[in-house]
Simulated assay, not measured.
Amino acid sequence: MSLGTVCVTAGLTGLFSFVFLAVAIGTDYWYIIDVSDSRYNHGEDSEDLNSHSGLWRICEGKNACIALIDPFGEESQNVPESQRHLLFMQKVFVILLPLSLVLLVFGGICGLVSSLANGLHMLLFTGSYFLVGGALTLTGIAVYIAYSKAAFAIAMHLYGHKLFDNVHIGFSWSMGLACLSCVSEVISGALFLLAAKLVAVQHPEQSAVI
């Protein structure tokens, strides 16, 4: 595989990573609650009981969407002490995931410059940068998963396990896109490191400086 092909593939993979993460952050299908088969819907339209949520809001029924509590706002002061850990996890993922998106922009700039210059040091830096960015995205996703599980555990504790016997919960396509973004980011980083290796082979005078 030629150096140019590797660099172009790495750049496209990084672009896909940005698009996947941007769509994931902007949509509300990270976590879904389906009560269609619940015995506790009391004859209500099941579609009005279903809900799905994202990083910023939760949507109940067909059109009603409400913003999640602002973890940095004044209303967060009224959260019970027993639920403070949820607020902390919310702060973590609402910072990490948008930050990862911003870092992808700078990573794309670095990737373009290093590909055009074919500089060994720049390619090594860009590859490492994308790998660190992928780890950051993965951390944000992991914290969101932990947050969702903890929130559901609190809900079951408050309302009882029987209420949730026929309630189906899970992660949806927004979460899937975030995971694809993480994988694409790691692949892009690995390809930039491969490009650096090809440069070192083709231009041993650059590797001799390291």
Rank of each mutant, 00 (worst) to 15 (best):
S2Q: 13
S2V: 11
L3Y: 08
L3K: 11
G4C: 12
T5V: 14
T5A: 14
C7I: 14
V8T: 12
A10T: 14
G11L: 13
T13N: 15
G14F: 14
F16D: 06
S17E: 03
V19H: 10
L21K: 02
L21A: 03
A24P: 00
A24L: 01
I25G: 00
T27K: 04
T27L: 09
Y29A: 15
W30G: 04
I32T: 11
S36Q: 07
S36W: 04
D37G: 10
D37Q: 13
D37C: 05
R39Q: 09
Y40Q: 09
H42V: 04
G43R: 09
G43V: 15
D48P: 08
N50V: 05
N50S: 06
L55V: 08
L55I: 08
R57T: 02
I58S: 14
I58C: 13
K62T: 12
A64P: 08
C65V: 05
C65S: 12
C65W: 08
L68Y: 03
D70N: 14
P71Q: 07
G73D: 05
E75R: 04
S76M: 02
S76Q: 01
V79Q: 00
V79D: 00
L87E: 00
F88I: 00
Q90P: 06
K91N: 02
V92M: 07
I95W: 03
L96G: 05
L96P: 09
L99P: 14
L99Q: 10
S100C: 06
L103F: 06
L104Y: 00
V105F: 13
F106E: 02
F106W: 02
G107L: 04
C110E: 05
L112W: 03
S114V: 03
S115K: 06
S115I: 04
N118C: 05
L120E: 07
L123D: 11
L124F: 02
L124M: 09
F125S: 15
F125G: 15
T126H: 04
Y129K: 07
F130Q: 13
T137L: 12
Y147Q: 00
A151P: 11
A151W: 02
A153L: 10
A153H: 08
H157A: 13
N166K: 06
N166Q: 08
V167L: 10
G170F: 10
G170W: 10
G170A: 11
G170S: 11
F171R: 10
S172L: 08
W173L: 03
W173R: 01
S174T: 03
G176N: 02
G176E: 00
C179M: 03
L180A: 04
S181M: 04
S181A: 10
V183H: 10
I187P: 02
G189H: 04
G189L: 08
G189D: 08
A190M: 14
L191Q: 06
F192K: 07
F192R: 08
L193T: 10
A196S: 14
K197L: 12
L198W: 09
V201S: 05
Q202R: 05
P204Y: 00
P204H: 00
V209C: 07
